[in-house]
């Protein structure tokens, strides 16, 4: 296994670990806002890992990379807002 293959294998293991972490959160019954915050961070981390290491968007200053990365800032923010509205409604 060369360096690149090792790198993507580690990324895959990290993605699986983050998924299992998310599932554990869902079962633990933590406060709604805390769950939303951790879920948002996990979604952002997973998205950014896939964009960089699986899709190969690594070039500095690339507009495409900026748009893709922005997506994984905006969507987790939306998750946080969705979690917050549930907390307000409770």
């Amino acid at each position: 296994m060369d360096t690149q293959e090792k790198r993507v294998t580690l990324v895959w293991l990290a993605l699986v670990a983050l998924t299992l972490g998310s599932a554990w959160l869902g079962e633990e019954g933590l406060p709604v806002v805390a769950t939303a915050l951790v879920v948002a961070l996990i979604v952002a981390a997973k998205g950014l890992l896939v964009i960089r290491h699986y899709m190969g968007l690594e070039e500095e200053g690339s507009r495409l990379r900026s748009v893709m990365r922005l997506y994984f800032v905006v969507v987790p923010a939306l998750i946080l807002v969705a979690g917050g509205t549930s907390w307000l409604a409770a």
Partner: peptide, 21 residues
């Protein structure tokens, strides 16, 4: 790349449906 994009969508869908309450 298309496959990874489909993966990206699921990365968001999974917690929305199975985790977030």
């Amino acid at each position: 790349l298309y496959w990874h994009a489909t993966d990206l969508a699921w990365i968001v869908i999974f917690p929305l449906l199975y985790v977030l309450r």
